[in-house]
Nucleic acid binder design. Sequence first.
DNA 1: CTATGAACATACCGAATGGTATATTAAACA
DNA 2: TGTTTAATATACCATTCGGTATGTTCATAG
Lengths: 209, 209
Amino acid sequence: MRDPERTRAAILDAAFTEIYENGFQATSIDDIVAKASMTKGAFFSHFHSKNELGYALVDEVLKDMTLDRWIRPVAAYKNPVQGIITRFRKIIETTPEEHIALGCPLNNLTQEMSAVDPVFRDKIQAVLLMWIEETEKYLKKAQAEGYLRKNVNTRQVAEFVVMVEEGSFAIVKNLRDKKVYWALYESLKQYLESISERPEATQDPLVRR
Amino acid sequence: MRDPERTRAAILDAAFTEIYENGFQATSIDDIVAKASMTKGAFFSHFHSKNELGYALVDEVLKDMTLDRWIRPVAAYKNPVQGIITRFRKIIETTPEEHIALGCPLNNLTQEMSAVDPVFRDKIQAVLLMWIEETEKYLKKAQAEGYLRKNVNTRQVAEFVVMVEEGSFAIVKNLRDKKVYWALYESLKQYLESISERPEATQDPLVRR
DNA sequence: CTATGAACATACCGAATGGTATATTAAACA
DNA sequence: TGTTTAATATACCATTCGGTATGTTCATAG
């Protein structure tokens, strides 16, 4: 009946939802344990402090979430540049309406806690760097296979792509208008095609919109 | 000796700095009045609540700050597209090292308060929309004067440009590496040139870096 | 079977914080 | 000049919240 790992996971899960919806500072430990149907005793037997819960959220939840959403699916595409473009589109398509107003969980925590707590900053920075590095790997592969111009700086493009992916969520969160996503999608596509070796190879074979 | 307007301005000024450095929720009213060398009595005679101070910050400080930094200076350029590009570069150049880690004040407030308080959300949205609309005006002008391709959707590009301007500050805030700015600058430049009628007209006459 | 420690529950505390009640001072106006 | 009112100061309050102290229960090792 007692299952510490499940308890810990349940706390992380409840914390993720509450913090995603209300922000880290605006979420109290009482909110979290109530959502998880537990008590403070359980909470503090798994986390030494509220901040440590936040750190665990970044390390154990947000990191994997980022990989699952933005990185791993790209591997399925022959042309990685098309993979990045299409992945962006699919994320737009599959993001439920309620989540649009909430933005990207990683970015939210980033903007709220990065300047306030150096440990948060370092841990979030590590996730961002991983995101950029993994994106750059795809770009290098695209370059090696003749999809991307040889003279482009892959690190520079990777940084731009990740910034666009995060920045898009951030601005749409505020404008609360999903149509803006499509405008940003078109611009990202336009940009990536402008540095592609054979732009026609990035054409999406599926119907759009 | 008594000067309500100056008092109010001093409170807004102190609040801006404190909130910029620590976030809205992490800043207490006591922090603000201490910084402004006043007392709570003065504070509450000018603002009914902490939230109302925040609203005034958006309406009276951040809105103008955005115009001054991103919009008005662009008017001085013959080619508005070059104006946007150069303005982005100049903002990078003139942002002091300590402010890099703090990001964009508007964006910080946005990400922290937008999902939590609908009034914040609406007020910040208004500033963002103004930013986008003013940017689009420049793009339309550029189009009319033959700098920008006639077939580009100026609204779409304006949304992308503003997203890049905000998103760049956001990611550099976390990566804490000013060099990333230059990479993002090059990418924005590349993008805007790819939709320009005469790309050579966007060449910056000054030495870069 | 029992003892031991980890997992969870309950009650509580001290500090911080947004806000108020009330006093005081200074400017404006009659 | 005297009065009134807005501006500012001071003291205080109620609540919230992170965290702790102290149980209690369950699983597992010996």
